[in-house]
Design a protein around this nucleic acid. Structure first.
Lengths: 295, 295
DNA sequence: GCCAACTCATACGTTTTCGGTATGCCAATG
DNA sequence: CATTGGCATACCGAAAACGTATGAGTTGGC
């Protein structure tokens, strides 16, 4: 059965006349008459009573009419919905984020997103450093807010900001009395190390920084997450070198101080599959940039 | 947009492959591929991601899929529903009946109908003698249970039984003591007259009967309905000559007696528009015949 | 009471669209 | 590097739909 036939049928039923319906459909009357008869042949029963003053639905025709109208509307709505999704007016956007960024960015990002794409279903999911790449690749998140960016040939990256490294330590530490800490003062102190996601679990994100200043910090502990690092710092296990935004989620008793002679930073980036042609990604990046700008 | 395209689209989406879908659709792969691309052109956006191992829906495609599946199901259901109505398995049957017949027939007819056509919505409406013809002609009832039958070129009739005329009188009347009343005994007594529906309001259904027996009964009152007639009989206004089934609805204090030497009767008939091709009519007649047979 | 007007149905030629076959392109695989 | 397995393209024949011309039946007016 053909949707055109149903469309014709509905038109004739509503106009109660083949001629009128043909006019509305911008076609000649005879082919429309033929199509109606073909539909009747397909159903196996007359759908109209032919009178001298037009056509009138039979009960079988009435039964068909309600469903055919709905089917037409659904099909049209389907096309429309697909267009809306393709254009970014509707759809779903699953946003992955790393926990360090949550407090700094989400409170500004989420309202901005809801305002920009009101028809889109938003979904947020925390990403761990170890799985973030896989979550982007298997599309379980559409975009990921990462620090640093994911490095993978299938994944595209937009840098939207950066966070300077700062020294995190217990408030009781003598270094906490300085307004900024010279790199040299770190020499020999124990380090709570976070791995660099690109270099495996035994790496540390601050190796280049320390090496450049010829500072050696023995690694006291290796942790996976920023909150773990801060917990250990609070427990007096050592010092951590963390991106500035981490202090928004820091517990009481931890102080952050800038590193006086180091301008190193970690990029904040939006990452997504290169073949995700969703138009929402562009919009998301704009929103994220705004949120970062007001951080 | 064409329903065939949508059907193809759903098949490809479900098979996640043009080739597999083509096989299921019993067609070659290239034309199917062409149709999918035409649909994408119509939507204005890709519906599938082409990988090296088949096709995968985009989000726009997913949005279309749910609606397209529903539309397909609805269209198929519409055709099926029209067939069901045309074959009498589903639909609506509006039954008109004249009040005299209600008590005698409906209690047996209605259960019989519900058993015979369980998928059909039944509707019952009392008909007055003056409007019954119009109600059949304008299809506000599909069939009418009438006594006597409607006489009209557009209306078809099936006789399903007959009811002998009986004399209705107050229990206190001397004639009530007879087990049957000779026609001659009616001579000169006042008549409560019901019009014959074919001969206008000033007629009487029993004129031929009286004339044949050379009985003259002065008309005491003209009434429209059988219950009016019985009310006046009970009030002592006169005698009525009514079909036998009327006694089922007669109030206490009225007695019916057969007319000894008169076998006249009124036909019970099913009446319907000649151009109503509903298959339910045939079934209805069968049910009505059964109901009358057990009356 | 006959003719004009209006309705849907039929016939036929033209055009569009669809489906099949042959073939190309590309990536993954051994 | 050849083979395999997937989709895309090109071309041709077939089917379906559309338009024009026309027929048939009924209503309504003169």
């Amino acid at each position: 059965m053909d949707l055109r036939r149903l469309r014709y049928f509905v038109a004739v039923a509503e106009a109660r006349s083949v001629g009128k319906a043909a006019e509305r459909l911008r076609m000649a009357q005879p082919p429309l008459s033929v199509q109606i008869r073909k539909l009747e042949a397909e159903v196996g029963a007359p759908l109209f009573r032919r009178g001298t003053r037009g056509m009138d639905l039979t009960e079988a025709g009435q039964a068909l009419l309600v469903r055919a109208s709905e089917a037409l509307a659904l099909a049209a709505d389907g096309i429309e919905a697909a267009r809306a999704v393709a254009s970014g007016k509707r759809g779903r956007l699953s946003v992955g984020y790393m926990f360090v960024l949550a407090n700094a960015i989400l409170p500004r990002l989420i309202p901005e997103l809801r305002r920009s794409v009101p028809g889109v279903d938003l979904e947020f999911a925390e990403l761990s450093a170890s799985t973030r790449e896989a979550r982007v690749l298997d599309r379980s998140v559409t975009v990921a807010l990462c620090m640093p960016a994911i490095n993978h040939p299938e994944i595209q990256v937009a840098r939207i900001g950066a966070q300077r490294f700062m020294l995190a330590m217990p408030a009781s530490s003598p270094l906490a009395r300085l307004s900024s800490v010279p790199m040299a003062r770190l020499h020999g102190r124990p380090l709570i190390a976070l791995p660099h996601p690109d270099h495996g679990p035994a790496s540390s994100a601050v190796v280049p920084l320390l090496r450049r200043h010829q500072v050696v910090m023995p690694i006291a502990s290796r942790v996976e997450t920023v909150h773990s690092a801060m917990s250990l710092v609070l427990a007096g296990e050592g010092f951590a070198i963390l991106p500035a935004c981490a202090q928004l989620g820091a517990p009481r008793g931890i102080v952050f101080r800038p590193l006086r002679d180091a301008t190193d930073s970690l990029d904040i980036a939006v990452c997504w599959r290169r073949d995700s042609q969703s138009p929402l990604i562009e919009t998301f990046i704009k929103c994220a940039e705004k949120a970062v700008a007001r951080m």
